[in-house]
Every structure is written in structure tokens, then in C-alpha cells.
């Protein structure tokens, strides 16, 4: 398994396509950071306009933690599209190049072969998230400094003390990794059914866009199926940035408002990962690799 994993990681990072995601994310993050650095206060005034009519905020609202939150909010919806570029190419790319038969002549089971490929794609996803964490959190903190984090929810505003934030980002990135693994698994699953990479990549991206739209729209028909869509759960990393109140209305430091929701989302996302990987292995075992 380790050998398959090492070879697959080598192959992933040998392809120029892999670096598109890193380059795109770097460009996006740096351009947003530049924009916020130059004119960030105007942006904060705009997003806080509803509150600034009634309240005075004294302190540094635009700090590294808020910039990271804004970046994650924007990026974690779009990163799946970049993951699809690699994950949906895993099997279909081999089929396209005619290397599948050659690879399977090695003394290893198809399950080991597939799991090795999936682990390699997961490693790529992990590196992508670490890169995002470095640019979005470390660089933002270096550029903008630290401070309390003020987040606007649908029905209320949350202020998190600056010494209570970093661990939340740690868990949020771990959660995001599970969410992105679901996308990796989807792309991996679809790549089994095609002899070229374009089809599975486009199909993965289409499914993500379609599900995201269904998750966003508040139409009663869609609301019934929303709890079962992985895109609904992918954004629940935000639950780490909400605090509980005690009976007197005081914020409980170090608390998470809806941990049950986080656990539920992790279970749903894990089910998606298991089903897609299991489906990919099952269908691959029946795949004609001689053609």
C-alpha cells in the first residue's frame, strides 16, 4: 500500500495540473489580502453597515483572524473545484494513457491499488489545505495583526476573544479536510467510469455546483433534501466560530454553540467518503482494463 501511495503521490506532483490549484489559491488569497490591506476598512464598513448605525466599535475589527475567516468563507466553496482537477483524473487519466493494464500487472490487489490512489489524492487535498491555512491564517496574521474576531451570523453577531480563536481555526481546518475528502472521494468515484479525464472532472464540478445551489436556496422542496447533501455540511466548519451563552447571557469561553451539528456533519461527510470510495473500488473491480 505504502509503495502504491508513494508512486501515486509522485505522479500527482509530477503533473503540472496539480500546481494549478496551488497557484490559483495563492493568487486568490494574495489578491484579496492586498485589496483588504489597501482598502479593508471600507469593506468592513460595508459588511458591518447594519450594526454601525447603532453601535460604535472600538478596536481593530480588520485583523488577521477576520481576514482568514473572509478568505475561508470565499475559498472553501471553490476549493472543491480545484480538488476535482486531480481527484477525477486518478483512474480515468490512467485509462486515457493506457497505463492501467500495466499498473495492474504488479502483484497487488485492485483494492490496494485503489486505496493507494485515494490516499495519494487525500494527501494532495491535505497539502492544499495546509497551504491555504498558511496563506490565509499565518500570512494574514503577519500582515494585519491579531484581535478579537467579529462574525455576522444570520440572526446574531458573535465576538470571539483573540485568545480563544486559534484552536477554533485548528478544528475548522480539520473539519474542512473531512469536507474536502468527500469531494476527493466523489471525483475518485466518477473517475472509474470514464476513459478520459475531462468527463469526470466536469461531472464532479457540475455535481458540486448543482448541490451547492440546492443547499443555498430556501425553497421548501429543496429544504427537505438539504440535510442529505454533502454541500450543506461542507460549510459547517463555521460552527466552530460560535459560542454558547450561560443562563445569564454570558459567553462561555472555549465553548462551541452547536457541537451536535458538527458531529452530525462529520458523520454525513464520512458516510459520503466511505460510500464513494467503496463504490469506486467495487466498480473498478468489474472494470474492463484490457480494452
Amino acid at each position: 500500500m505504502w509503495k502504491v501511495f508513494s508512486i501515486e503521490v509522485y505522479k500527482i506532483f509530477k503533473r503540472p495540473r496539480t500546481y494549478i490549484a496551488f497557484a490559483a489559491i495563492s493568487a486568490l488569497i494574495l489578491i484579496i489580502q492586498l485589496g483588504l490591506y489597501v482598502d479593508g476598512n471600507a469593506y468592513v464598513d460595508f459588511i458591518m453597515s447594519g450594526l454601525k448605525d447603532s453601535f460604535d466599535f472600538q478596536g481593530k475589527i480588520l485583523n488577521g483572524y477576520l481576514v482568514c475567516y473572509i478568505l475561508l468563507q470565499l475559498l472553501l466553496v471553490h476549493v472543491p473545484l480545484l480538488i476535482a482537477l486531480v481527484a477525477a483524473d486518478l483512474v480515468s487519466g490512467e485509462a486515457n494513457m493506457g497505463t492501467l493494464r500495466l499498473l495492474l500487472t504488479k502483484p497487488q490487489s485492485k483494492t490496494t491499488f485503489m486505496l493507494g490512489k485515494f490516499l495519494a489524492a487525500s494527501f494532495y487535498t491535505l497539502l492544499l489545505l495546509i497551504w491555504i491555512a498558511f496563506l490565509a491564517l499565518a500570512v494574514s496574521v503577519w500582515l494585519f495583526g491579531t484581535g478579537d474576531l467579529i462574525i455576522q451570523k444570520n440572526a446574531y453577531v458573535v465576538q470571539i476573544a483573540q485568545n480563544d480563536i486559534l484552536w477554533r481555526y485548528g478544528y475548522a481546518f480539520l473539519f474542512a479536510f473531512v469536507a474536502m475528502l468527500a469531494v476527493t472521494a466523489l471525483g475518485f468515484f466518477l473517475s472509474v467510469f470514464s476513459e478520459n479525464s475531462i468527463g469526470p472532472i466536469v461531472a464532479t464540478i457540475s455535481i458540486i455546483i448543482f448541490f451547492t445551489i440546492m443547499s443555498t436556496m430556501g425553497i421548501p422542496l429543496f429544504q427537505k433534501i438539504q440535510p442529505y447533501l454533502f454541500t450543506t455540511h461542507m460549510v459547517n466548519w463555521k460552527e466552530f466560530f460560535d459560542e454558547q451563552l450561560d443562563t445569564s447571557g454570558n459567553v462561555i469561553k472555549g465553548s462551541i454553540q452547536n457541537m451536535q451539528q458538527v458531529n452530525h456533519s462529520i458523520i454525513i461527510l464520512s458516510i459520503y467518503i466511505i460510500v464513494f470510495v467503496w463504490g469506486a473500488i467495487t466498480f473498478f473491480k468489474q472494470k474492463d482494463i484490457l480494452s
Binding site: G50, N154, N236
Partner: peptide, 14 residues
């Protein structure tokens, strides 16, 4: 105070 879900990108109700 209330802001739209499209703005916060939060799909779950509070």
C-alpha cells in the same frame, strides 16, 4: 437584526 443567508453562506437555521 437579521441578515440574509446568501451573505453569511450559512445554510442551517439558528
Amino acid at each position: 437584526y437579521k441578515i440574509p443567508k446568501g451573505f453569511t453562506l450559512e445554510f442551517n437555521d439558528a
